[in-house]
Write a protein that binds this DNA or RNA. Structure first.
Length: 287
DNA sequence: GTGCTTGTTGGCCA
DNA sequence: GTGGCCAACAAGCA
């Protein structure tokens, strides 16, 4: 589930509950694979007694900064989520990491275990964090940068290109479909075949969807919606894309679905005309 | 039982 | 070396 805005939502959840508070105990699932390279004992030793000082989200990653130059990176993978429970709440089956504070338990839950937790020590944030591409809502995300990237990834379907984190950090499957739907671009269109105007539209809609999603899903400023997706309007593709028989909220036309770029993709044929078929390769000239 | 799933990575091939 | 595609990772749900 977690894309840009959901990640920010989860970050705020932990941050609001525990910023300035000390971790009194660390509970780890004995068989969790989300810790990857970090040994559970190292994690427990580092975090016990540490105070959460600040946190940040970028793309689909989160970084929680603790006292004593300890950093906890979190990626939620496909099915991860962060919860806040009352202190001492027993861990559930897929609760892989629980950080107890005096008031709350911060829980990392992930049934499919594609998520990961990374520990870092140092005065500076880890390299993997600083290497994340500049945010889509930053000044560095320019129409020219998008244009250049589409050209470089010219033969790939635009849907697959939007999922590439090196240029579109934080965009996942539903946001990519939402952007293309708003831009009126068919997801199978070869990235390199987009016109200058389409490329500019894509840039604009990518920023628009990011801003809208962040405001709606994660809340503005310090505010935090009571749950994910409760505020998403019915006018977005989001609510219609998964149902068989779902209809385009703008045209009422039946939505189509297919696997494009290896992912289930939904589009509105009325708004997103299919690209012309690629020309057949010419037969070799006879000698 | 089958067929799906909102992410990432590494290997293979052109 | 670069780019594109695909399987694998794992568990739950319909």
């Amino acid at each position: 589930m977690p894309e840009l805005a959901e990640v920010e939502f989860f970050r705020k959840r932990w941050d609001h509950a525990a910023r300035g508070r000390r971790v009194t105990a660390v509970r780890l699932h004995p068989h969790a694979k989300i810790f990857r390279g970090t040994s559970p004992s190292t994690l427990r030793h580092a975090l016990t007694g540490a105070v959460l000082e600040s946190s940040d989200a970028a793309a689909k990653q989160m970084l929680f900064r603790f006292s004593d130059e300890i950093w906890l990176g979190v990626h939620l993978g496909m099915s991860g989520e962060l919860r806040v429970e009352p202190a001492g709440c027993p861990a559930g089956r897929h609760d892989h990491l629980v950080l107890d504070t005096a008031k709350h338990a911060l829980v990392f839950n992930d049934p499919r275990m594609f998520g990961r937790v990374l520990l870092h020590r140092g005065a500076e944030p880890p390299v993997w964090w600083t290497k994340i591409a500049p945010p889509i809502l930053s000044a560095a995300f320019t129409p020219a940068a998008v244009r250049e990237f589409l050209h470089r990834r010219g033969r790939a379907p635009i849907k697959a290109v939007l999922l590439m984190q090196e240029r579109f950090p934080g965009i996942g499957n539903w946001m990519a479909d939402e952007i293309l739907w708003r831009a009126g671009i068919h997801p199978r269109t070869a990235a390199g075949s987009l016109t200058e105007a389409q490329s500019k539209t894509l840039w604009r809609e990518a920023r628009h969807v990011c801003r809208m999603a962040l405001d709606t899903i994660a809340g503005r400023g310090r505010s935090l919606p009571r749950d994910l997706n409760v505020n998403i309007p019915d006018t977005w593709l989001f609510h219609h894309r998964w149902q068989p028989g779902g209809r385009c909220p703008r045209t009422g036309v039946l939505l189509e679905r297919a696997e494009i770029g290896g992912r289930t993709t939904c589009w509105s044929p009325a708004r997103q005309p299919a690209p012309p078929r690629a020309p057949r390769p010419r037969p070799a000239a006879r000698s």
